[in-house]
Design a protein around this nucleic acid. Structure first.
Length: 160
DNA sequence: ATCCTCATTGCAC
DNA sequence: GTGCAATGAGGAT
């Protein structure tokens, strides 16, 4: 399942961002996760520098090489999100669902399974009446305060 | 193969 | 207000 992945770590105000990349050529990012704990940072690389620039507000688009399972409805929804909702903007589950010809519920599911948050900016998808949710984990069993991260990212982008 | 889980919304009563 | 249908994919068994 998780065979040859290397973990890079960037710290921020509220915790750590974990970047899982493969070790083959070319190096691509396969997963991004959030952790409430403050971990030791790893040496700088393409992935950590982009994340750090984003956190310092000098970068608005994460565009390092990634790999994810495409061709599914979920992947389509994530791709549509990435191409239509730019930095500092937000949308709702319902709006994105209309754009993708599905239901808001399914958009929520797609966000919950997002393996590459920040690259696919799922934090910019909010509920009609509330902020909605935020899992912040693609696969691990760590429990984090997801909403705290969603608010942090939206605040960073000035969307509050 | 079956069951469960997971970040929603709008409409009917 | 409450109830419910719509409805992808992954993981466990």
């Amino acid at each position: 399942m998780m065979h040859n992945l290397e973990i890079s770590i960037v710290k921020c105000e509220i915790g750590s961002i974990l970047i899982y990349s493969n070790t083959s050529n070319p190096r691509v990012c396969e997963r991004i996760e959030f952790l409430d704990d403050m971990l030791e940072e790893t040496p700088e690389n393409l992935f950590t520098s982009q994340i750090r620039e984003y956190l310092e507000s000098s970068r608005r688009v994460i565009d390092f090489p990634v790999k994810y399972k495409n061709g599914s409805k979920f992947a389509y929804i994530l791709e549509k999100l990435r191409e239509t909702v730019s930095y500092g903007r937000i949308t709702t589950y319902g709006e994105l669902a209309r754009l993708c010809q599905t239901t808001p519920r399914v958009v929520g599911f797609a966000m919950a399974y997002n393996p590459l948050p920040l690259y696919f900016p799922c934090h910019r998808v909010v509920g009609k009446q509330s902020l909605g949710g935020f899992a912040g984990r693609a696969n691990n069993i760590q429990k984090i305060d997801g909403l705290k991260w969603k608010k942090y990212l939206l605040d960073l982008e000035g969307s509050i």
